[in-house]
């Protein structure tokens, strides 16, 4: 990752324009050619430096459901349980954490009632208790990781 990659990552974490030639617009701001931007972006995605580039959707504003759920998974069953959870397309993120509660995942669904069905399904398929922790209030969301 060189300085140009870093500049691309920093710039693209902010709002990407909605206009006829948005990559051209960004490339001009970086002082590079649009083909170079597209090639760099493709490589950053392929190598997993960026996990995605596109619209960040808000399930609740779509009229859907969103929750954070936690589980206490026995170490020897960790990978097996992760596989079951990750197999649901509605699981948007899943993180291993250093704690008794060692698996934390976010569910995003098109309809609110799906949340309970899927949590129930996960609990049945894993035989483990699922702790549902839907937000009661959001005070701030706006992750930026400058490089």
């Amino acid at each position: 990752m060189d300085n140009l990659d870093k500049a691309i990552i920093n710039l693209l974490q902010d709002d990407f324009p909605i206009c006829e030639a948005p990559y051209q617009n960004v490339a001009e701001r970086l002082g590079i050619d649009v083909d170079e931007l597209l090639q760099r972006l493709e490589r950053l995605l392929q190598t997993g430096v960026l996990s995605r580039f596109g619209p960040m959707f808000h399930a609740e504003k779509m009229g859907g459901g969103l929750t954070l759920a936690a589980m206490q998974v026995p170490e020897q069953r960790f990978d097996e349980v992760a596989e079951i959870i990750n197999s649901f397309p509605e699981v948007a993120h899943n993180y291993a954490r250093q704690h008794r509660f060692n698996m934390w995942f976010v569910l995003a669904t098109e309809r609110p009632e799906q949340i309970q069905y899927i949590l129930q399904d996960i609990s049945e398929k894993t035989g483990l208790k699922v702790y549902d922790m839907p937000k009661k209030k959001e005070y701030f969301v706006g992750l930026r990781l400058p490089v």
Partner: peptide
Amino acid sequence: AGIIRRIAAVPNHYKLD
């Protein structure tokens, strides 16, 4: 409407150190 928070890149924290 807030359905799209923004159009942006989502970095992998670890790969950015």
